[in-house]
Write a protein that binds this DNA or RNA. Structure first.
Lengths: 203, 203
DNA sequence: TAAAAAATTAATCAATTGATTAAAACATTT
DNA sequence: AAATGTTTTAATCAATTGATTAATTTTTTA
């Protein structure tokens, strides 16, 4: 029941375990991960994992919260800023999100896979009542009142995120050429905004 | 070592196990699935699973091959038909794929998640040398020689598939309204082709 | 129908795995 | 330095899990 004691060195051990947990959980998912994998990856004794985090599930929960925040949170501040107009907002979110995902290519598949299971995690999502409040939604409604803004949101995010989710498949198509895929992802920073603008005009 | 004996009733038992395996594997993924789950789901004794399929992994492999075929195979015949021109090809693939995925909403996340692990599965993909042979790629090259056709392919498939992958997230946004999401997916049959045509013109 | 083969079951095994324990090593306080 | 508290370790536990076994029931063959 006693709370964890926070000493001066918040890094080391506890943080090393968490870092290893992030890596292993992200690569293999919750079910395929053994606590021994995490212990080995962080170079600590298995018992320390339970000493610091009580259980596999609790440790996972902490990592999952971080990753959900990272996945959804990176987008919200951009699309919710009322001071940037629609077109530059699109450029900002595409460019920013592609950069973030390039540094965390496993993030989307991890978050979306693990979301399906734990029903309690869904409740804690930072997605409460996005519907009308977001300035991005408002701006889409103004420009194209005839189309459900969710349709645009789905499409734009899908354009950005899907290449990361299907990365193994696309690497096969490209002859498992890793750098080629990187080049393509960078090109999309310009392509997607151009295409989205065309979409917004399409009748 | 002896091969499985194929009697007249290829359904029942063996097929019941496979059907249950499809359901449970698709819902929970390989690692989270216990053979006992499958046995229970199919109403058979646990030992029968090994009697018919030798191991969890072999059973999974059979299911996975099916699902890979279903996921990629449903697309190839449409986009590889040289007799349909680009625009109607787009309409066909969007409509057909949305229908197929509406009947199998777990398919994309399952296939793309499980692909990341088993490296041997990648080799057996029906994606060998898609690059130039596909008439769809050729047609894209003709219409827009300035853009890598993979960029279009990524985008179109992403538009179609992403809503299914992120379904739990979108259900939250829509207030976990299942029918609302169905309506949106049906609308996309017309929206996506319209948008893709606009993309193809965009400079 | 008797014998042989195939299908099914209950019980069990061995390995894995999350977690705990008790002792040891290390650090801090007095 | 002794006492106290904290961190780390090796060993072990109990539950789970994939798989097997040996016996039983059902089906097919002769």
């Amino acid at each position: 029941m006693a709370e964890k004691v926070k000493t001066k060195k918040d890094f080391s051990t506890e943080e090393r375990i968490k870092k290893a947990a992030r890596k292993v959980f992200m690569q293999k998912g919750y079910a395929a991960t053994r606590t021994r994998d995490i212990a080995e990856e962080s170079g600590i004794n298995l018992a320390l994992l339970n000493y610091y985090f009580r259980s596999k599930e609790k440790l996972f929960h902490e990592v999952m919260m971080e990753k959900i925040q990272q996945f959804f949170g990176a987008l919200l501040p951009i699309i919710d800023d009322p001071s940037t107009k629609l077109e530059s907002k699109i450029e900002l979110m595409v460019s920013g999100y592609i950069d973030m995902l390039s540094s965390n290519p496993d993030l989307p598949l991890f978050v979306l896979s693990e979301m399906r299971n734990s029903s309690d995690l869904k409740k804690i999502l930072p997605v409460q009542k996005i519907t009308d409040k977001l300035s991005f939604i408002q701006q889409l409604k103004e420009k194209r009142p005839d189309v459900n803004p969710i349709q645009f949101l789905m499409t734009i995010i899908g354009m950005i995120v899907f290449p990361f989710i299907a990365q193994p498949a696309f690497e096969l198509i490209l002859g498992s050429n890793k750098t080629e895929l990187q080049k393509i992802l960078q090109q999309r920073k310009k392509l997607i905004p151009m295409w989205v603008k065309a979409m917004l005009k399409a009748k």
